[in-house]
């Protein structure tokens, strides 16, 4: 073995992380402090400031219209949210909801442009594909380490780790959706003299909408799956209740917190799926 010495990969990564940390210190500080404060305000002042009954009512009304005036999701929303509140987990639910919202929003804001870029350029696609594979297959726990190094503990590193883990589906599905638009429609668009931007906005993105939305749905679900993991580095929410229950070997409270996550997951999933309709689709 001695012929080739052990390659110091671990040292390199550590050094690189430290280098990034130093170079981008002002940005990280800003994100940790100001963005962190904003997340806290969003969760504790805004969301928790709304009376529980009003919050449930608003979500129920939205569910009613999102599902095309059916009552299934409405009933589930009302019962589910009432149950969480009844179990004394409302604040945890709001924190988790905040984490998921921010992680998903940032993932989409980053993911869609990358997906478009990937669809427009073959080289970019061949570079990004393995990168996305890497991001998704690397155990999610590993992202917690640089997250803590950059942002300390709390919500911000939780969002950061979730974004890394949850972005790939949006990128992939955006790319796929745009590439799936039929060649003849692209020709039609070109034949009428569209610029690249017009073609993207008037033809490709509207046609890819359904696929992109399916990707976003997956992104939201992945962000939600990071909730428990992120709570290991101090992200508040239902995940924390699960971890606490695990540490104290309390089966009951563990499951109750788990139910809360399941209820949130189902509500978000049905909402994003029901919003995913395309104009001109035959019913």
């Amino acid at each position: 073995m001695g012929i080739i010495p052990e390659i110091p990969v671990a040292e390199w990564i550590t050094a690189a992380t430290e280098g990034i940390q130093e170079a981008l210190a002002p940005i990280f500080t800003f994100l940790r402090d100001d963005f962190g404060d904003f997340i806290e305000v969003f969760a504790e002042d805004w969301l928790m400031g709304v009376p529980i009954w009003l919050f449930i009512l608003v979500i129920a009304v939205l569910a009613f219209f999102a599902t095309g005036k059916k009552f299934g999701l409405v009933a589930f929303t009302v019962l589910g949210l009432w149950f969480v509140a009844n179990q004394g987990l409302w604040e945890e639910l709001m924190n988790t909801f905040t984490l998921v919202i921010f992680a998903s929003l940032i993932s989409v804001i980053i993911g869609v442009p990358f997906g478009i870029w990937m669809a427009k350029s073959k080289p970019v696609e061949s570079i990004l594909t393995p990168v996305l594979d890497f991001m998704q297959t690397m155990p999610a726990f590993v992202y917690l380490i640089p997250a803590v190094a950059f942002f300390g503990i709390g919500m911000v590193p939780g969002v950061f780790a979730s974004v890394i883990f949850a972005t790939p589906p949006t990128v992939r599905f955006t790319n796929l959706g745009i590439r799936q638009v039929s060649g003849e429609l692209i020709e039609a668009s070109d034949a009428f003299g569209t610029t690249g931007a017009q073609k993207l906005l008037k033809v490709q993105l509207p046609m890819a909408k359904k696929t992109i939305m399916a990707g976003i749905n997956q992104t939201v679900m992945l962000a939600l799956s990071m909730v428990v993991i992120a709570s290991m580095i101090g992200a508040k929410g239902l995940g924390q209740s699960v971890i606490t229950a695990l540490q104290r070997a309390q089966v009951g409270p563990g499951f109750v917190a788990g139910f809360g996550i399941v209820i949130l997951a189902i509500i978000i999933d049905r909402f994003t799926q029901n919003l995913n309709t395309q104009r001109g689709d035959n019913p």
């Binding site: 020709e187 034949a191 009428f192 509207p206 395309q278």
Partner: peptide, 17 residues
């Protein structure tokens, strides 16, 4: 392409949305 020439396609190529 915008002003002088238009095209009609075999499979119509209408925008379904």
């Amino acid at each position: 392409r915008r002003k002088k020439m238009s095209m009609v396609f075999q499979r119509f190529a209408l925008f379904p949305h």
